[in-house]
Every structure is written in structure tokens, then in C-alpha cells.
Design a binder for these strands. Structure first.
Ligand SMILES: [Zn+2]
Ligand SMILES: [Zn+2]
Ligand SMILES: [Zn+2]
Ligand SMILES: [Zn+2]
Lengths: 163, 163
DNA sequence: CGGGAAATGTTATAATGTATCAAATTTTCC
DNA sequence: GGAAAATTTGATACATTATAACATTTCCCG
């Protein structure tokens, strides 16, 4: 698995996209799932940056490309991608982002920069463990964790200090 | 501070409501904030159970009571209550729930039962600490944490096993 | 009182997400 | 290969959640 680029640092983002698409194809092949052209194109659009994209933003890009698309087109593709662990929905933003750890078993932890909008997905096993322990202490059977941290990324934080 | 009732166990819920309203009045007085009749009524409606309530559910109850209310009425009251730490928004449900630790500095962790719909708010300092550590390790300045765990509460979990 | 701020009323609209059913495509299995 | 079944897509309509904008009222303070 390639090492993770930091979203808020300049990087060869095309490599992120290529890697994500290659991973997605491999995962879908392994799961006997059909990564159809629309689904793949939606995934690629989601990965166009490290900023979460709204469903209607995706829709706008699809229609701009001449595809006949309606809201269900996008939501169905996003549902598929979520179910196969290729994208995550950011509940606090009503938006979607490519999974940075597709294929790895993980509960995503998202660091969302309020200033630049970029999102970093961490695995943070320590956090996951603490959450599981806390749930277990309450005899609660945890099935799905939503963990989203809004704040300032290192870059925006340092910029806001020396202005 | 009164000890917390477990939402999914039978309890004298009127006590929860009374306590929440008394706390709210004290907090608003201390902060020089105006807990107007509509705001107080919305808080009371939110506290009518331990299940999160949608803004439009609140609206329906207000209009049923004869109040002339529109969406902004409710959203403004909810904004006020959130800003003063009296209710939380559950992002994964687009719904609102009374804060079980009003006045205490905390980052809420919500255990949401998929079966009965009840929500328990925990303080879980261990989790908060782990989250802070993980954010700090990435040089990320965390400002707001959304932590929502969907699953099965002890009651629903045990019921689903011996049926 | 009176002037300014805060809160509310009112209407309209934006943004996000689903239900439903028909048509097309792909897979399965003989 | 070809019919039947399952999956995917198209298309329309609608439901739900949230906000913009501006007028009016109420409250606070001097
Ligand atoms: Zn992920
Ligand atoms: Zn940033
Ligand atoms: Zn709380
Ligand atoms: Zn339950």
C-alpha cells in the first residue's frame, strides 16, 4: 500500500487518483462487484481533490459532461462506493470523500480543516480502541462509528498566526 | 449534578425533563442569555424523550399547540440552545437531543441504538484524550468533535438474541 | 419615555435525499 | 445461443432538511 500524501501539502495528486482507481478496480474484482463506468467516474470525481464533494456537485459535473444524470444516479453510485468501502460520507458536511484506506479494515477518523476544506483520514487505532472500550463499558454493541474533527490543519493554523 | 438515568431503561423521565429545564434556566441566567418561552418550550419538546427529535417534528408540535411557527422559529431556537450547550445536533440523524451534561465542559459521545432509537450521551474522557492525542500528532488544531456510535443498546441487543 | 439591540413573524427558496416504476443491460443456466 | 432472472440505469416526481431576506415586535438601557 502506498504511503499516504498529506492533503494540505502540495503533492502529485494525480498519483492519489490513479492509486485510488487502481485499488478500487482490484477491490471490486475481488468482491465480484461491478465497477461500472458511471460508478468509476463518480469515484474519480470524488477523488478530484482532498475536499469532500457534495452529491449535487458530482451531479453537476456529470451533467456538464453530457451524461444524462439525475439525483438517483449519483446517490446510487455513492451508495455502491460506500458499501464497498471506497468512499465515506462526512455527516457533518453532507458530503463525500474518497477512502484513503480502501481495503483495509478501519473506522475512519476525519480531520476537517475549516479554513482550506481539506480532509485527512486517519486510522488512529488508539482512538478506535478507546471508543470500543467505552461502548463495551456501557454494554453497547457498536456497529458504525462517525468520528469527524473540525478544526485547523497545520498549514492554515500556522498561516493564521503570522499574518 | 444528578446522576444520569439510562435512556433505555424505564425511569422517571419527568425528573430528567425537570432537571434539564432547571439547569437550562440556571445556565442562561449565569450567561445573561434569554431563555424565552419559545426557546424553553423547544428545549422541553427536545427532552420529551431520549430519542433525537427532528427540527420539523418540533415544528409540528409547536403548530399543534397553536403557536404560529415556521421553520426559522425552530432553527433559531435550536441554534440558541446549541450555542449555550443545552442541546446537541446528531449529524448522522439530522436530529437534536438534549445535552445530558449541560454546563460541564465536555465533548459529547453518543451511543445511538438502531433498534429503539434511544441515545445515551457519554463523557468518555479516555476517548476525548485519545482523539486529542491523535489530532496533536498530526499538528491539527481540533475545535469541534463529532462522535456518534450507531449500534444496539444493551436492552435491544439482549432481546434480539433470545427471540 | 426613546433609541438601539435582540428576538420573532412571514414568505419564499435552497440544498439534500428518496420513492417509484419503466427500460435496458448483464448474468445465469439450460 | 437464447430465455429467464437479477442487476443496473433512466426518468419523473416528491420528501425532508435548512436558510435567505426583510418586516415587525419586544426588550433593555439610559
Ligand atoms: Zn476510509
Ligand atoms: Zn487548512
Ligand atoms: Zn452534551
Ligand atoms: Zn435499543
Amino acid at each position: 500500500m502506498a504511503s499516504q500524501a498529506l492533503p494540505y501539502r502540495p503533492h502529485n495528486h494525480q498519483a492519489c487518483v490513479s492509486q485510488a482507481l487502481a485499488d478500487a478496480r482490484a477491490i471490486c474484482r475481488a468482491q465480484n462487484a461491478r465497477l461500472t463506468p458511471t460508478r468509476e467516474r463518480v469515484l474519480e470525481l470524488i477523488w478530484q481533490s482532498h475536499k469532500p464533494l457534495g452529491a449535487y456537485d458530482v451531479l453537476a459535473e456529470l451533467t456538464a459532461e453530457g451524461q444524462s444524470a439525475a439525483p438517483p444516479t449519483v446517490y446510487r453510485a455513492l451508495d455502491f462506493l460506500q458499501q464497498h468501502g471506497l468512499v465515506h460520507r462526512i455527516a457533518s458536511l453532507n458530503a463525500f470523500i474518497g477512502c484513503a484506506h480502501a481495503g483495509e479494515n478501519h473506522t475512519g477518523m476525519f480531520l476537517i480543516c475549516r479554513s482550506c476544506g481539506n480532509v485527512l483520514e486517519l486510522k488512529a487505532p488508539g482512538v478506535s480502541g478507546a471508543i470500543e472500550d467505552a461502548a463495551k463499558a456501557e454494554h453497547f454493541k457498536a456497529e458504525d462509528v462517525t468520528l469527524e474533527i473540525a478544526g485547523l490543519c497545520p498549514r492554515c493554523h500556522s498561516e493564521s498566526r503570522h499574518d
